[in-house]
Amino acid sequence: MPLLRRLWLRLFATVGLVAAVMLSWWWKVDAARAPDLVAGTSFGQPIDLGRTFFTPEALLLRQSEPPELVLSATIENVTGETQRSFFGMPANPPQIILDGAPLAEEPEIILLRDNAPLLQLQPRMPEEIQMVWPLPADWQPKPVQIAFEKQTFKLRDNLYGQSSWLGYTPVAQMTVTPEVE
């Protein structure tokens, strides 16, 4: 009887181990089979960035010294309180990608109504903004990729059970050639 019991336990453990190995192997296969494709988007379509809905309107190349890339957009705060960090904390604004390399500079965010930096977004008050990135001096217009990431909200996080804004996931991307202003 003890022999049967021991055999049974070992069999049970072996089956569990094999199941775990097979499952992780299948997850790897599944991930390789369907690569994560980020949905494309276009001007005029609102994108959910978590705290805000962001609607890109136009991309312009401003030929100043240095040249600047200007993304016009409408942004609306969809949370229940005034936001000072509209692109999350730490800030994760739409990312400009030139020739496969992300632009390192942080954009300046201008509230068009005041022609001044955007400081706050009030709930239910969409605002027109411009995001301005400085470019290298000799930059010529060519297709630019813009990547958008959404911040995840959790009402009760796993650490304290408090409501938290957590990591980012890619939600949309678009490739456009800027119009020369």
Partner: peptide, 16 residues
């Protein structure tokens, strides 16, 4: 200061 609106959204005083 904040304004708690009719919809219970919390509006901070404007920095504008």
């Amino acid at each position: 200061t904040i304004w708690e609106g009719a919809s219970k959204r919390r509006y901070a005083s404007t920095k504008r």
